[in-house]
Design a protein around this nucleic acid. Structure first.
Lengths: 209, 209
DNA sequence: ACAAGAAATGAATTTGAATTCATTTCTTCG
DNA sequence: CGAAGAAATGAATTCAAATTCATTTCTTGT
C-alpha cells in the first residue's frame, strides 16, 4: 500500500474540478451552450478531454452544475439586496435593477443561463434556479403586502410574473446579438419601472449609486 | 414529354405537405420537440422518412414552419379578441385570458411552443412569434394609454413584460408534468389579474363566457 | 529508488439520429 | 399500352460530438 490520497492531492483535485467549472463559464460566455463542447471546455481548463470525465459523469451534469453555481451566486446577490434595510418597494426595485444590470452586462452568459437551449439536465437546473429567484421576489412582495405598500395579491403568481417579465425583457434584446447593445442603464431602469408598477407599487426613484 | 404535373397532383402534394405539418403538431403534442424524430413524424403522417425531405429541406425548417403555423393561428385568435368591441382594459383582459386558457388546455404543445429547447430555426421562429404576440398587446396598451385607462408607460416594454409574465406563469406549471394539473380556469384568472394590475388597470371583472 | 496505486491523457470508438439516394411505384399523355 | 418523367420509399450512409479506455505520467510510503 504505497499510495494513499493525501490532503494536498485532495485539494488539487478540488481545484481542478473548480477550474473545469470555471472553464465552462468562460466557454459558455464566449460561444454559448451550443458551441460549448467538452473538448473545448477541457482545453480552456488546461486538461485533457478524458479528465473532465474523471470529475463529472456527463456533459449534461457538468453544464448543469456550472449553471447552478452561477445562478446560485446571482440568487445570493439578489437575496442580499432583498435582506437590506428599507421599504419593500425600495428593496424590490433594487433587487430587480441589480439583476437586470448584471444580466445586461454579461449578455451572452446571461442569455445562456436564462434561455439558451441545452441538455435536459441544464434545463432542470434552470427551472430550479428560476424558482429560487422567484422565491426571493415572493418574499419581498409578501413583505410589501404585509406593510400595505402593495395591494393584496397572489404573491406566488406575481413573483413568477416578475421573473417572466424580467427575462423576457432581457432575452429579447439579448437574443438579437446583431443589434446594437441597448443602453444597459436605461433598459434596466425601464424594466424595473414596469415590474414595480406590476405589483402596483408607487414609482421608486433609484438611490444614489 | 409524357408527364406534366397536373392540378390534381399539385393538390395532393399540398395535402401531403399539410399532413406532414399536422403530424409534427401531433407528435410534438405527444412527446415534445425532444422526442420528435423525423422518422416518427413521417410515420404519423403516413409517409416514408425520405418523403419528408421532398417537402422540407431539413428537420429544423420543418419544425420551425410547424411552430410558425400554430403560433400564427394563436396570434390571429388574440388579434381577433383585441379587435373586438369594448374598453382597452376589457379587451386586454380577454386577450390574455384566452391565450392562457388555450395554453393550459393543450399544455404539452403549449410548452413546446413557448419554451422547449429545439433546433435553432425553431428558436428563431419562436422569437418571431413572441414578437407578434407582443405587438398585439402593445397595441392594446397604447389604446389604453390613449384612452386614459392606463397610465403613460413604455408600451413596448410593458408588452414584453406581459408576454414574459404569461409564459412564465404557464411554463412553470406546464414544465412540472408530474404535478397535478392546476385548475385551468383559476390559473388563467390569476395570471390575467396580475397582467392587468401590471399595466395598472383597475381590476376587471370577467365578462360572461 | 522502487513498487503500488491514482490520476491524466487523447486517440479511437460509439452512438443516435439526420440525411441521402438507388430503386420502386405512380401519373400522364401520345 | 408504354415510354417519360415525378414522386415515394426506406435501408444504408454520414456526421458530429460524447464517451471510453489502453497507455503514460505522477504520488506516495517503504
Amino acid at each position: 500500500m504505497a499510495y494513499r490520497r493525501t490532503e494536498r492531492v485532495q485539494e488539487q483535485l478540488q481545484d481542478k474540478r473548480d477550474r473545469i467549472l470555471q472553464a465552462v463559464r468562460a466557454v459558455v460566455n464566449e460561444v454559448g451552450f451550443r458551441g460549448a463542447q467538452v473538448a473545448t471546455v477541457a482545453e480552456a481548463a488546461g486538461v485533457a478531454t478524458g479528465t473532465v470525465y474523471r470529475h463529472f459523469p456527463s456533459k449534461g451534469e457538468l453544464f448543469a452544475e456550472a449553471l447552478a453555481l452561477n445562478a446560485g451566486h446571482e440568487v445570493s446577490v439578489m437575496q442580499a439586496v432583498a435582506d437590506s434595510e428599507g421599504t419593500a418597494t425600495a428593496r424590490l426595485a433594487d433587487a430587480i435593477r441589480v439583476f437586470a444590470l448584471r444580466a445586461v452586462r454579461a449578455r451572452r452568459l446571461a442569455w445562456a443561463m436564462i434561455a439558451e437551449p441545452a441538455e435536459p439536465e441544464v434545463d432542470a437546473a434552470r427551472l430550479k434556479s428560476r424558482r429560487a429567484f422567484a422565491d426571493v421576489l415572493q418574499g419581498l412582495i409578501e413583505d410589501g403586502i404585509a406593510g400595505a405598500e402593495f395591494p393584496p395579491q397572489n404573491a406566488r403568481i406575481a413573483a413568477a410574473g416578475l421573473i417572466g417579465a424580467l427575462t423576457e425583457g432581457l432575452v429579447g434584446p439579448l437574443a438579437q446579438d446583431a443589434e446594437a447593445p441597448p443602453n444597459a442603464l436605461s433598459l434596466s431602469r425601464e424594466i424595473t419601472a414596469f415590474c414595480l408598477q406590476a405589483v402596483s407599487a408607487r414609482p421608486y426613484e433609484e438611490s444614489r449609486s
